[in-house]
Design a protein around this nucleic acid. Sequence first.
DNA 1: GCCCGTCAACTGGTATGATCAGTTGACCTT
DNA 2: AAGGTCAACTGATCATACCAGTTGACGGGC
Lengths: 240, 240
Amino acid sequence: MFESVRKQSLSEVVFDQLRDRIVGQQLKAGDELPSERVLCELLQVNRGAVREAIKRLQQAGLVKVRHGGATQVLDYRREAGLELLPHLLVDEHGTLQADTARSIVRMRQILTPNIAREAANHHSPETLAQIQHCLAGLRREHDTKRLQYLVFDFWEALVDASGNIVYRLSLNTLRKTYEPLWELFTQLLSDDFHDLPFFEELTAAIAAGDADTAFNLTQTHIDHSSELIFHVIDQYEATP
Amino acid sequence: MFESVRKQSLSEVVFDQLRDRIVGQQLKAGDELPSERVLCELLQVNRGAVREAIKRLQQAGLVKVRHGGATQVLDYRREAGLELLPHLLVDEHGTLQADTARSIVRMRQILTPNIAREAANHHSPETLAQIQHCLAGLRREHDTKRLQYLVFDFWEALVDASGNIVYRLSLNTLRKTYEPLWELFTQLLSDDFHDLPFFEELTAAIAAGDADTAFNLTQTHIDHSSELIFHVIDQYEATP
DNA sequence: GCCCGTCAACTGGTATGATCAGTTGACCTT
DNA sequence: AAGGTCAACTGATCATACCAGTTGACGGGC
């Protein structure tokens, strides 16, 4: 099929370039960015584009801007937020960083059972209905690719039911992080997507308000898929 | 003492105003922002300032900008990242949102024991030394206020030792979120800060690579302080 | 009637150059 | 050596063009 052509604004290009230099350590913490006027000259763009890019770097916690003084590069490991994750997982050369990948899987591994637990504790009639609606979709679908989307919707419904906004926002970022790798998981986690009994039991446990069962069921399920992914990461790391 | 005077750039003011309207639901998901030129007129500022603010909104996942079309407000609960948290905890009127506060405490509660576990599993000689250095500081300090900083440094050392970048970035955001409420915790968690035996045992467990003990010790410790905080939140919510 | 191209009137994106405002450091005075 | 002055940086703001993509009304063709 056709792919949508990518259109990047200038300020986006500038932002990407500076961000990559920072996470790539060519610009280290404490270093000073060239002045806006110099950057214009170096990058051959107008100053507005440079300023927009720097505003975004500031928003991302990568630089500190001071009126009258030079713009300073911050230590992104101490200052940046989760939203930097996508660019730590895949570096500027498109290389996947195994350490980051493992970190993400771990996070998912510990977050998901707790989401299930809190969904059992805090669900409302509306959010429960949404979960059950997702479950009904899972029952009908057999194509792995489409199933993957439905499984994801199921988890999103759980997060909503948990009522925990921090889980919600964290998962948003995690989603954006592995969206580019979506198809990688289609085959890898195929068995998990097709594990209908699990989704049935989990939904039942949540509906019954049985938090411990919801937690344990999910932990078992997620531990399994995590092991699969860890294994693939190890393989990837071993064969450059 | 004196407080440093706050200086906010225009684009920052514009950004704050628009962000508050979005999280405050005056601008709902799907709504269209006024055009940049109209916003200039409404806010009586230069277009550059408006554009810089909108770039930051875009970076934060709050709006979707399309060349030629209107800028659309997104559903921040589905699109935004963790970095929005500070502004969900305290709304534009300075009111603390109890639900968000509880979500944050829960997140901390489930994250911290896992950080300890992974610190036990993955620490290097350097990161372990850093933890022990923090512990030494805790032994010497008795003033609660200064102790609070040292305790925080201790946890940061643990996160570094865990080697998990996702934990690291999440904690960065959580830190920025409760930084404004820092003094609130000074008295509330005073007993926890002074619980030296806990820090001693935890450090020993990590040094010994005993992940389960590290996990359990931390869980007990954090569960206790979480209960304290939950209690205060409940009280706060009951007395408006 | 319906389809399709045209075009004007939006929208955001880029460019230029001027000016305001805070920071820094060399230099001069005391 | 201490302190004040000032020129030369830095970022912040402004005004005004013009480029480029989107939208929808309009009108000719079938």
